[in-house]
Nucleic acid binder design. Structure first.
Length: 507
RNA sequence: GGCCCCUUCGUCUAGUGGUUAGGACGAAGCCCUCUCAAGGCUUAAACACGGGUUCGAGUCCCGUAGGGGUCACCA
């Protein structure tokens, strides 16, 4: 256990491609643990595999954190990102950030000397040794073991050569202690017991190209950077005993471990492209709120419990209530219907001006709004009409497009009310237009009162008159509520469209 | 195959020996209603299986089955 220091967690992805939301759920758990405890959270890029490195990856990872609003107390700075060949013109995440007492660099390829030094320390202390078998030789050894139906385990005794010149190309392997057992006190899973005799080959900790492997690099960094809780995907559980041995070989205290269960697709299998392995950006672009995504991700595997049945949480509430001992042990499945519902809930809770700001970029992209600033006020007024019927931000366009641009005069058959003749529809429109034009105040309450009175005057049912008006002013059969819609639209536009409709009906 | 993890409605889950097994999403129905929604009410829907332990098991133990992870000079 790391004692006497604050909770410090980290997210340490390998920049080898685009991270899907499942990875960010693990990151969110780590972030929540840190914030709940008033501790720190930082980002470390584990790029010790140069062959799989994808230069677009660091940027995607950092911008995802930015969009989600998960702040970092440390991470790759501008210079580090430049060295990683991330776009020159990109400002980078940490230029305005601070490194609050957490030692960097935060990119593993910039820490090679540290790993080398630590690997040599283990050789000197007898916990590791040099080896230089070629991959062909190793393959042959595996085949031979296979043929004898026994498991291939590489140990110091198995190596072909032991007199290795430190100046020649070679790897350093960790010498696994195969006696006794290792117990991992996992914060989520409880005690997990491993028989050390079952452990696999002595792992390479320093590759012949001078790069460390995960096992060495992550343990060294977590120690040097003061990580108190190692929160990671459950796929790491099998190598946890090895990690404990490495930490012990250095004489360090080990951190709390928490292995987070996987997230599966709706086929029960590992998340794939087809089953929803999307990036954070894809959700953003599809019109999801970060609040909803975060809420949804947090509840995949975590629940408040204790009889509390709250479903909708703000980030602050999650920070206040999250704890690892409430994280379930079993894998969860993405169910996007629930995300949609959460999105609705968070949309409804957003203040109108804020919601309008979120909707605006989508309307601009969809060509509904051209002059955003000029039309912002109208947009804010529309929010009360919209927020109850929007599932995603992309839904807004269909409800508001006719407020911001002219509409073609609807076809005549659309201008005839239910169970009404053409002349009757025309009459009703003409009379109602007259009433609306004479209305002293063109606000929602006045409009409603006047139109309901019109139903009586004309002996029409609300459904008849109102659908007629709706179609005439919007050109649509599905719109926000009529009275509020007319008020926001304004008398001038309403009269213009009603008169056109009357003309289209021949009169 | 060895080792490890997991198993409550379709999905996310509550439950820590005694419950009519609760909630949410989704589904169906009803109500409300100017369309679409929202909202309200109601219904269907689960303890993987088999043995124990116990007066009593979703809860404890042991098996079985199923799912997943891992066994690289990848992370």
């Amino acid at each position: 256990m790391v004692e006497g220091i604050v909770t410090r967690t980290r997210f340490a992805p390998s920049p080898t491609g685009f991270l899907h939301v499942g990875a960010f759920r693990t990151a969110l758990f780590s972030w929540l643990v840190a914030r709940h405890d008033g501790g720190q959270f930082f980002l470390r890029l584990e790029d010790t595999d140069q062959e799989r490195y994808v230069p677009a990856s660091p940027r995607q990872i950092i911008e995802s954190f930015q969009w989600l609003g998960l702040d970092l107390d440390g991470g790759p700075d501008h210079d580090a990102l430049r060295r990683m060949k991330v776009d020159e013109d990109w400002p980078g995440a940490m230029d305005n950030g601070e490194f609050r007492g957490i030692p960097g660099p935060f990119v593993q390829s910039h820490r090679l000397d540290i790993y080398k030094r630590h690997a040599e320390m283990l050789v000197a202390s007898g916990h590791a040794y040099r080896a230089n078998e070629t991959s062909e030789e190793l393959e042959a050894m595996r085949k031979a073991a296979d043929a004898e139906k026994r498991m291939f385990v590489f140990t110091a005794d198995a190596r072909l050569r032991s007199d290795i010149d430190p100046a020649s190309p070679h790897v350093i392997r960790f010498k696994i202690d195969r006696r006794g057992q290792t117990v991992i006190n996992d914060l989520i899973l409880g005690d997990v017991v491993f028989e050390n005799a079952n452990l696999t080959s002595d792992p390479v900790i320093l590759k012949s190209d001078g790069f460390a492997t995960y096992h060495l690099a992550a343990m060294v960094d977590d120690h040097l950077q003061g990580v108190s809780h190692v929160i990671r995907a459950q796929e790491w559980l099998a190598s946890a005993p090895l990690h404990v041995q490495i930490i012990r070989a250095f004489g360090w205290q080990w951190p709390h471990f928490a292995h987070v269960p996987a997230v599966n697709g709706n086929d029960g299998k590992k998340l794939s492209k087809r089953t929803g392995a999307k990036s954070v950006f894809e959700f953003r672009d599809e019109g999801y709120l970060k609040e909803a995504l975060l809420n949804f991700l947090a509840m995949l595997g975590w629940a408040v419990g204790d009889g509390d049945e709250q479903n909708v949480f703000t980030l602050d509430e999650l920070v206040a209530r999250f704890s690892l001992d409430r994280v379930g042990k079993s894998p969860a499945v993405f169910e996007y219907a629930k995300l949609d519902w959460l999105n609705e809930q968070h949309i409804k809770r957003l203040p109108d001006p804020e919601l309008a700001e979120r909707v605006l970029p989508f309307l601009e992209k969809q060509g509904v709004i051209v002059q955003g600033d000029a039309q912002r006020d109208t947009l804010v007024k529309l929010m009360p009409l919209l927020k109850e019927r929007m599932k995603k931000l992309t839904d807004a366009a269909a409800f508001v497009d006719f407020f911001f641009g002219d509409i073609p005069t609807p076809p005549a058959d659309m201008l005839i009310g239910p169970k009404m003749e053409q002349h009757l529809s025309r009459h009703a429109l003409r009379e109602t237009a007259g009433v609306l034009n004479a209305l002293p105040a063109f606000d929602e309450a006045s409009i409603e009162a006047a139109l309901r009175a019109q139903c009586d005057t004309l002996s029409l049912k609300p459904a008849q008159l109102f659908s007629l008006l709706r179609n005439a002013v919007s050109g649509k059969t599905v719109t926000p509520p009529l009275f509020g819609m007319l008020a926001v639209m304004g008398r001038e536009t309403v009269m213009l469209r009603l008169n056109r409709a009357i003309a289209a009906l021949g009169g």
